[in-house]
């Protein structure tokens, strides 16, 4: 890996540049040479002008795990929305909430963020505070009774993290989190 500072930054930021170009092309709607070029120029201007910490991604993309993650997430999202709507509409029912802390097993910002995002969008829980240095995630559970209790809610967050790791993590990271050998 090149240690020259400017070249090193380009290499770690090419993913951001590609993503920004894709966003620009989506915005305009048609895939023409002009749009792609304009997108590239703007992406380059943004990444050089507004410098942000590059994200370290040492993992591997696993298609099977990713499919399982996406399918389960879609099902959970639909279930969650209708559950919360029912709680909102049902007359004379007041939900009792709780704030629980969950210690995540992985040591990376990216997985913490992904798990936090997915947990916020699925049934009954919302991330209130995330301490990235210790890997603690604090969630607010909307209705303790509906989630099956506090321990069940904690376990569902750990399950979510496991699905994320099995979709994106490299082998060393899986071993470090203690997840090897249970499933593919």
């Amino acid at each position: 890996m090149s240690l020259h500072p400017r070249r090193h930054r380009w290499r770690t930021q090419w993913a951001t540049i590609v993503w920004l170009t894709v966003v620009w092309v989506f915005l305009w709607g048609d895939l023409s040479v002009g749009n792609v070029l304009a997108g590239l120029l703007i992406a380059l201007a943004v990444t050089t002008g507004l410098r942000m910490a590059p994200i370290d991604f040492h993992g591997r993309f696993r298609p099977l795990g990713f499919l399982r993650l996406s399918a389960r997430f879609a099902v959970d999202l639909v279930k969650a929305s209708f559950e919360v709507s029912l709680i909102a509409i049902r007359p004379r029912y007041v939900p009792r909430g709780a704030v629980i802390g969950v210690q995540l097993r992985s040591h990376s910002d990216l997985y913490l963020t992904l798990t936090a995002e997915l947990c916020s969008l699925v049934p009954g829980s919302l991330v209130v505070e995330a301490h990235r240095l210790t890997g603690m995630l604090y969630l607010h559970v909307l209705d303790v009774r509906q989630s099956g209790g506090i321990e069940a809610a904690r376990q569902s967050v750990l399950d979510q993290e496991e699905r994320v790791l099995r979709a994106f993590a490299s082998d060393e990271e899986l071993v470090a989190a203690g997840l090897v050998g249970v499933r593919t």
């Binding site: 704030v99 629980i100 802390g101 604090y138």
Partner: peptide, 11 residues
């Protein structure tokens, strides 16, 4: 007081 458990405040 409205929450069943509040681990964030405890921590």
């Amino acid at each position: 007081d409205l929450l069943v458990v509040d681990e964030l405040t405890d921590d």
